[in-house]
Design a protein around this nucleic acid. Structure first.
Lengths: 206, 206
DNA sequence: GTCTATATACAGATAGAC
DNA sequence: GTCTATCTGTATATAGAC
């Protein structure tokens, strides 16, 4: 592997971490260069602008999201997949308490500024939303699926914000329990395949 | 009222709006001075530092929060108060879609930086959380009240973030309906006063 | 109390030697 | 491809006349 790729990767990784920790605007190119052990002036050989680095970081996040969904999809039924999603939300809580959700934080910050970076960040949350909706649809919730997905992602993002605000991982633990119970009650008697019968059951429960 | 107070008030109001729109770090003193129609150099007569302006803005938000709670408390029973809170979340949604939640945004941004400003911003969300918990406690939910409050505030903050991220007020409308239905089912058969009977009912429902 | 001019620091970005 | 030195703009903050 040529050093070119190596440095590029290092810069993206450094930027990814620092942007999560300090936010995009508060992260300087000097910060990134230092963290990646690359001289400041050399950064511009790999990225024309700071925005280009932001773009690369979000693309990296998108790849990680895809891998994450693949992992979740290994669960045999959609209900277990959604449960896994909630479970993963209780990992790395020290990081979440310190710096909040890496994706939610980007959407919040960049959303105010508009532009293509904001759109790219929003797509990450959109993908998560769509993934959840797919699971609910597979469980037979039909037209209710979008609302259920919205409720779930909303809940997750909200508890991340509170966990960060109060610097208290226990909040996320508590809410994860609540969310899992909600999902359990919601899917009681519902199978993972979409048939006319399960659709009726799901519609009734919802 | 002396002009001194007038300019101070104008600066705080301008800062409040701009910080909501652009975030604290992205709002410059020049921005604030211009918006308040005060010469840049004069700003420092009223506030020693930019942080001092941030402090004043958060204090203003705290006052508005208190007034807001007073308004909500005008409802006769706690259930109606919580319903009102959800209802208020569906007002000014164009603003929320454009700039997100003014308080949530501050907590997110300042939380990463730490310091006293972050603590002050966090206190705003804490007050909201405590207010909600008080309502649930009045409804007889006892020890479940903290979790219910957490769930509610978490949900509200989450949907604000999504509304902002996707620039779509309809999302907040949809989720408000879901939240209200949740609250309705939760409090079915529960009265607004705390007696041993209602406590049992509430505990059972929760 | 008010306001212009400016000091100081640091950000993103570039030039050009190697 | 790499890296030092630096340009340019802009931010917070100050000095000091009025």
């Amino acid at each position: 592997m040529p050093r070119k790729t190596d440095k590029r990767v290092r810069l993206i990784e450094a930027a990814k971490v620092l942007i999560h920790q300090k936010g995009f605007n508060q992260t300087t190119l000097a910060d990134i260069a230092q963290e990646a052990d690359v001289p400041l002036g050399n950064v511009y050989y790999y990225f024309k602008t700071k925005e280009a680095i932001g773009e690369a970081v979000i693309e990296k996040r998108a790849v990680e999201f895809t891998e994450f969904f693949s992992k979740l999809d290994e669960n045999s039924d959609p209900r277990a997949r959604l449960m896994s999603l909630i479970q993963f939300g209780t990992e790395d809580l020290e990081l979440t308490a310190r710096y909040g959700c890496s994706v939610g934080g980007l959407c919040q910050e960049l959303g105010k500024q508009g532009g293509s970076l904001a759109d790219q960040a929003a797509k990450l949350l959109h993908d998560l939303l769509m993934w959840c909706e797919t699971q609910f649809r597979s469980l037979g919730f039909g037209d209710k699926s979008a609302d259920l997905a919205l409720n779930m992602v909303s809940n997750i993002q909200g508890i991340f914000l509170l966990t960060h605000t109060f610097k208290d991982p226990k909040l996320a633990i508590r809410q994860a329990k609540v969310l899992q119970e909600w999902l359990e009650k919601l899917t009681t008697g519902v199978r993972g395949t979409t048939t006319s019968t399960t659709k009726q059951v799901a519609a009734e429960v919802a």
